[in-house]
Simulated assay, not measured.
Amino acid sequence: MKILVLNASPKGKHSGTMKLTESFLEGIKKIEDCEIDVIDIYSLDIKPCEGCFGCWHKTPGACVIQDDMSKCLELLKEADLILWSFPLYHYSIPAKGKMFLERTLPLVLPDLVKTPSGCTHPSRYDKEQKVVLLSSCGFYNIENNYEGLLMQFSLLYKEYTKVLCAEGPLLNIPEVSYFAEQYLDNVRKAGEEYARTGQINEETKELLDKPMMPIDMYLENAK
């Protein structure tokens, strides 16, 4: 299985969210052999989409902008599983991650097809791909914070699996590593379950959705 990790954190490999992703991958690798590529989006030389639609009409399937995105599009086409990894910024994806997402327009066709909720652009390539969203935030809870982002992902992907981690700063505070390690153990378990069945068990989901520590303790440690 080919896995592509899209690291959209400005902190790159030092991102706390990447600790979630690496733990999830550890779980997958216990069950399945896989080839893993990581794209560190903030290290790329990519420019914003110009909205010219050249990738639909002038050079179908290829962006007219010559930069690092051309190689990324090839990796995206080849992947069996795509892992989006980023912290929640202003209730959404960090800016360069959003720019990267917009530059994936060459992967869909200009045609519009009818859907139960309206219409959409179909994929240019006949390939079944799975998607997992792994994200952390600085809030005490995930409720009333992730709804906007989750709606966007629901529109982008027919199906996707999510691991959302509240109290994300704790992942990088050595003094409270006990709480983080307990959480990451559950993320590894989630990776194993996903590799076996293509989904995360409900019991594991409940553990992942819970804060790592009580709110008063968190507010004290997250200063």
Results as ranks from 00 to 15, higher is better:
29 K>Y: 07
30 K>W: 09
31 I>Q: 13
31 I>G: 07
33 D>Y: 12
34 C>I: 04
34 C>Y: 06
35 E>L: 11
35 E>M: 12
36 I>S: 01
37 D>F: 05
40 D>M: 02
42 Y>F: 08
42 Y>R: 08
44 L>P: 06
44 L>H: 01
45 D>E: 09
45 D>T: 00
46 I>K: 09
48 P>C: 00
48 P>A: 00
51 G>R: 12
52 C>M: 11
53 F>Y: 14
56 W>E: 07
56 W>H: 13
59 T>A: 10
60 P>M: 06
60 P>F: 05
61 G>C: 06
61 G>F: 03
62 A>C: 14
62 A>Q: 15
64 V>Q: 10
66 Q>C: 12
66 Q>M: 12
67 D>E: 04
67 D>W: 07
69 M>K: 04
70 S>Y: 08
71 K>I: 06
71 K>D: 15
72 C>R: 03
72 C>S: 08
73 L>K: 05
76 L>F: 12
78 E>N: 06
78 E>Y: 01
79 A>S: 07
80 D>M: 01
83 L>C: 05
84 W>A: 08
84 W>V: 10
85 S>M: 05
85 S>N: 13
85 S>Q: 05
86 F>C: 04
86 F>P: 02
87 P>D: 03
87 P>G: 01
87 P>Y: 02
87 P>W: 02
88 L>S: 01
89 Y>K: 03
91 Y>L: 15
93 I>H: 08
94 P>G: 09
94 P>Q: 11
94 P>A: 09
95 A>M: 14
99 M>P: 10
101 L>M: 15
102 E>G: 11
102 E>R: 15
102 E>F: 10
104 T>L: 10
104 T>F: 02
104 T>W: 06
106 P>T: 08
109 L>E: 06
109 L>M: 06
110 P>Q: 00
110 P>K: 00
112 L>C: 09
112 L>N: 04
112 L>A: 02
112 L>M: 11
113 V>A: 01
113 V>G: 02
114 K>Y: 00
116 P>H: 01
119 C>F: 11
123 S>R: 14
123 S>G: 11
125 Y>R: 10
125 Y>A: 09
128 E>V: 07
130 K>Q: 11
130 K>Y: 03
133 L>R: 03
134 L>W: 02
135 S>W: 01
139 F>M: 12
139 F>N: 11
140 Y>C: 08
140 Y>L: 06
143 E>Y: 11
144 N>E: 15
145 N>Q: 15
146 Y>A: 08
146 Y>Q: 07
147 E>Q: 14
147 E>F: 12
148 G>S: 15
148 G>L: 14
149 L>R: 07
150 L>F: 06
152 Q>G: 14
152 Q>F: 14
152 Q>K: 15
153 F>V: 07
156 L>F: 12
158 K>W: 00
160 Y>L: 06
163 V>F: 00
163 V>P: 01
164 L>I: 09
165 C>L: 10
165 C>Y: 08
166 A>H: 04
168 G>W: 02
168 G>K: 03
169 P>M: 03
